[in-house]
Design a protein around this nucleic acid. Structure first.
Length: 741
DNA sequence: TGAACTGATACTGTTCAGGT
DNA sequence: ACCTGAACAGTATCAGTTCA
């Protein structure tokens, strides 16, 4: 058998190239096996500890070393001329700990900064998904992917060195999560903050009273909590198509799904996927967000009062001054025109002061008073009051990307001291941070920050106005009553214009619009695509990040726009800086793991100095876009200077930095661009459908022009209205003083 | 229903490689 | 030699499951 069977690899084959085998003495045909191994490039070592593969007799498992494989592995591999599946020949399941940690380590491997970062991110993700940070499971999974240390070692390291540090901000859109492999029982979750070191000995503290998954108020989380028992089925395979049955499931569960609050999204889908195992949590979530929910919204347009569609007209690319409309009526079957009429009517009779005030003036003026009412019940009371005042019910929640958010949450985040209210957030462009605070996955939903901004303008600016006006007027609730509201034609037109602008913005497509320059700050467009209409990505980056572009590049190197998509993708990279260093490190290490032969160093040494890769990334972004065109060394010298290197003292710094860019930042940049372009294409494809159902492009153009005129008109009018409002307030204060007297 | 069993978590203690 | 800390073994405890 042998001769003929392994002929193809005999006499110098490389089947076992470089592999070291320990072959147990009591293995059948041992001499032959040794011979075969040697003839096929392998080595036979005398000590177990030096071997890559331990070979033993599967007929005597008790005598076989832990982790060993049957001698049949060698025999069959040689017979076939290709390596058999090693696991299929594994004799005895190694002990639990060894399995978890992979091959036993006998040498000490120091923990690097990268290791610490990696495990921190992993644990943070795990915690978010409801795993016990101190449990074993997540470390076992992690060690499988990262065998540099054993699971136990990873765990020890995290607990001893890292558990006391603040958790990194994480990117849950990454596909690299701990997964519930052992779905047969729930994990105990111990809140890190409350955990003490020696709780294990007392039953009350060591687990009896611990909760399982974090209690979730949501229907979905409740319905599909991780405590649910579902038969453990193999992980669903990727790319399983969504069938009618799946859609039925989503239909059935949709009322619950839309109630998932922020922060519970991932956990809820994990639980959902556990119940409906045909797809992974990620696939369910993706399908829901990208397909099901948009379709649902299209179908239910005008019917579903709960859903507020993240549609183009009210989302990112609206150029409208929609904040001038106090609150859009809860979704109804009214068309835009009708809705405009209604608002018009409301504006006429009831809301002059509200609509005419600019958000900036309102929020900055009385922020302290606003924050004083930072209490949900008060907030809701104010909301009701405003609803009453304008005669229109304001929904206290809204839906974004298929998730339901409380208006209060958005409002309270924006008005937190660290954000300082609407105007401050606007000025410092911190909507991204607001989105993050709200638990929105800003990687997956890149436009979330602009959508939130729009929501705030639409729904909350007027509330701010209402609150501040209410306080200004004292405790007597004299605010917006019909009798006191000045009814001015200005406000009427203003409101109407705003509605029409809104309609316009819903109809226009992403891209250039005419007359944008005439718009004032308050009407600035908010989509990245439109926000920096005449900037190159590089310029945009410079403006937004404060990074100085190297001087050589600064001149005459601004390229013509290659494509809208590429620009948008570039802008997204710029936006990603806002996610912070850890998000970047996480992305790049995932990228490196998939695409590079070696892991990246988070703190490369440049000119004998340790610097942060994130800093290099931030500073080099403008260069990466034009990497191949850069010939001048001066550019790199500039970069080095930006990063704090004295070029004369650190002459090699420029070259080293250039090397870092060339080695992997360039690849990462390209990868990022490609990925974003893909996403943009998908988003556009999605967007196009509803637009096609809307008006024709010809109509759009006509309406665009009309609306632009009105917008400009509105600008002028608003200023007048502002003056009127200020006058009104002065008058009211006088009246109050008189009454007090 | 309760005991036995099983598996997971939480923690302690020991060994030893590697650095000073 | 001493110290640090990675690696690992062992134990206590708890919670879920099984079965009489």
């Amino acid at each position: 058998m042998a001769g003929a069977v392994y002929e193809g690899v005999a006499g110098g084959g490389d089947l076992f190239q470089g592999q070291k085998f320990f072959i147990s003495q009591r293995v059948p045909l041992r001499a032959e096996l040794i011979d075969n191994v040697k003839r096929n490039g392998g080595f036979v070592v005398p000590l177990e500890k030096n071997a890559d593969v331990l070979v033993a007799d599967d007929a005597k498992p008790k005598l076989a070393p832990a982790g060993s494989v049957s001698w049949k592995y060698l025999k069959q591999s040689v017979e076939k001329g290709e390596l058999e599946d090693l696991e299929a020949h594994r004799i005895n399941s190694p002990s639990k700990t060894r399995l978890a940690g992979g091959p036993q380590k006998l040498t000490r491997t120091p923990f690097t900064h990268e290791d610490s970062m990696a495990i921190s991110i992993w644990v943070a993700k795990a915690e978010k998904l409801g795993f016990a940070a101190r449990g074993n499971e997540i470390y076992e999974q992690f060690a499988e992917k990262n065998p540099r240390h054993t699971a136990q070692s990873w765990r020890d390291h995290w607990i001893k060195q890292l558990s006391h540090q603040p958790r990194p901000e994480i990117d849950m859109s990454s596909t690299d999560w701990p997964v519930k492999i052992k779905g047969d029982r729930p994990r105990r979750v111990i809140p890190p903050a409350t955990q003490s070191k020696n709780v294990g000995t007392t039953p009350s503290a060591s687990g009896a009273g611990r909760s399982l998954v974090p209690p979730s108020p949501t229907l979905l989380a409740a319905s599909y909590s991780l405590e649910d028992e579902a038969p453990l089925i193999e992980a669903p395979s990727k790319d399983v198509p969504f069938t009618e049955e799946d859609i039925e499931i989503l239909e059935r569960e949709h009322p619950d799904i839309i109630k998932i609050p922020m922060g519970d999204w991932v956990v809820a889908w994990e639980a959902f996927a556990k119940k409906y195992t045909r797809h992974t949590a990620g696939d369910w979530s993706r399908y829901y967000c990208e397909d099901f929910h948009p379709r649902k919204l299209r179908e239910g347009k005008g019917k579903d009062a709960i859903s507020v569609k993240p549609k183009p007209n009210q989302g990112p690319d609206s150029t409208s001054k929609t904040y001038t409309t106090p609150v859009r009526a809860p979704a109804s079957s009214r068309s835009h025109t009708e809705s405009g009429k209604q608002t018009h009517r409301r504006g006429l009779g009831e809301e002059g002061a509200i609509v005419s005030k600019s958000p900036e003036s309102a929020t900055s003026k009385d922020r302290s008073k606003i924050s004083a009412s930072a209490d949900k019940s008060k907030f809701l009371a104010n909301l009701r009051e405003l609803s009453g005042a304008i005669g229109c019910e304001i929904e206290p929640s809204f839906s974004l990307y298929g998730r339901n958010f409380e208006l209060y949450d958005l409002w309270s985040v924006v008005n937190k001291p660290e954000f300082g209210g609407f105007q401050k957030v606007e000025e410092s462009d911190r909507w991204l941070q607001v989105a993050l605070k709200l638990g929105i996955n800003t990687y997956r939903d890149e436009m979330a920050h602009t959508a939130l901004k729009q929501k705030y303008r639409d729904k909350l600016v007027d509330l701010d106005t209402h609150i501040s006006a209410g306080k200004t007027r004292g405790k007597r609730r004299s605010f917006p009553t019909k009798s006191t509201e000045p009814v001015t034609p200005v406000t009427t037109i203003s409101t109407q214009a705003s509605e029409q602008t809104h309609a316009y913005s819903s109809a226009r497509k992403d891209g250039e619009t005419k007359g944008r320059a005439s718009l004032t700050e308050s009407t600035e467009p908010i989509t990245p695509v439109t926000a920096i209409p005449r900037q190159t990505p590089e310029q945009a980056h410079i403006l937004a990040s404060g990074v100085n572009i190297p001087k050589t590049l600064r001149q005459a190197t601004v390229p013509p726009q290659e494509s809208t998509n590429k620009d948008a993708a570039t802008r997204r990279i710029r936006q990603s800086l806002g996610h912070g260093e850890l998000a970047f490190l996480q992305s790049i290490s995932e990228f490196a793991r998939d695409c590079l032969p070696d892991p990246v160093t988070f703190e490369p040494i440049v000119s004998k100095r340790k610097i942060r890769l994130f800093d290099v990334w931030t500073a080099s972004l403008p260069l990466l876009a034009r990497f191949d065109d850069i010939e001048s060394r001066e550019v790199w010298d500039d970069l080095a200077t930006q990063l704090g290197f004295e070029v004369s003292m650190h002459p090699s710094a420029s070259d080293e930095l250039r090397q870092i860019c060339e080695d992997f930042l360039m690849d990462f940049y390209e990868f990022f661009i490609q990925r974003e372009q893909e996403k943009i294409r998908e988003e556009e494809a999605l967007r196009q459908q509803p637009e096609e159902q809307g008006q024709s492009e010809d109509e759009e153009v006509v309406e665009e022009e009309a609306v632009e005129e009105e917008v400009m008109e509105e600008e002028v009018m608003e200023e007048e209205v502002m003056e009127e409002v200020m006058e009104e307030e002065v008058m009211e204060e006088e009246v109050m003083e008189e009454e007090v007297m």
